[in-house]
Computed example of a mutant assay.
Amino acid sequence: MNPIDNATETRLQRGQRALAEIDGEAGEAVVRSLADIAPDFATYLLEFPFGDIYSRPGLSLREREIATIGALCAMGTARPQLEVHIRAGLNVGLTREEIVEILMQMSVYAGFPAALNGLSAAKAVFAALDSENGPDEVGSAQDIS
């Protein structure tokens, strides 16, 4: 994704573009889920984290997802968001092995329960992906051998 360089693109448009590139259908589902309860919040979600922060220069999307996966795991209270960002990590080039290592690293700073919960979330995402795509797709079980 290009850093903020298009003066004609609004924050919302930039956020929509970033979300599609990072999270694909999973991110779009989150936005759709807010339509009937908090459509303004969906706009804020697109504009600030994705339109402003994810679109900044300085870190690649891959590096941003490493930080995001680590932070969500450490929080210990954001499993749905962690699962979305584990998928996003795979979308932007992380391997399953790298995601497992990120989550294991959290045991040192966030504790074993947080790391165990993160690994459980990763296992669920990997199983769902294998079920959807088959084991030979990108991000499959062979990546962690």
Score class of each variant (00 low, 15 high):
Pro80Thr: 00
Leu19Ile: 06
Tyr54Ile: 09
Ser60Asp: 11
Arg11Leu: 15
Leu90Pro: 00
Arg62Ala: 08
Ala127Arg: 12
Ala141Pro: 06
Arg87Lys: 14
Val84Ala: 14
Leu59Lys: 13
Asp36Glu: 14
Tyr54Trp: 15
Thr77Val: 14
Arg62Trp: 12
Gly118Asp: 04
Gly58His: 01
His85Gln: 02
Leu72Glu: 00
Ala7Ser: 14
Tyr109Arg: 08
Ile66His: 03
Ile53Lys: 09
Asn117Gln: 10
Met1Pro: 15
Ala114Gly: 02
Asp23Pro: 03
Leu103Ile: 07
Ile37Asn: 10
Glu97Pro: 07
Ala67Ile: 11
Ala115Lys: 07
Leu46Val: 03
Gly134Ala: 01
Gly89His: 07
Asp143Thr: 00
Ser33Asn: 04
Arg17His: 12
Ile69Gly: 08
Ala122Pro: 10
Tyr44Leu: 15
Leu61Arg: 09
Glu132Val: 04
Leu46Ser: 12
Ala141Glu: 13
Thr77Pro: 05
Ala38Tyr: 02
Pro49Val: 04
Gly76Arg: 04
Leu116Glu: 02
Ala42Arg: 04
Pro135Glu: 13
Gly76Leu: 08
Glu83Tyr: 05
Leu12Asn: 15
Phe50His: 10
Leu34His: 06
Ser33Phe: 03
Thr77Trp: 10
Pro113Leu: 00
Val138Ile: 14
Ala18Thr: 11
Ser140Met: 07
Thr68His: 02
Ala121Ile: 04
Asn91Trp: 05
Ala38Cys: 12
Ile66Glu: 03
Ile22Ser: 00
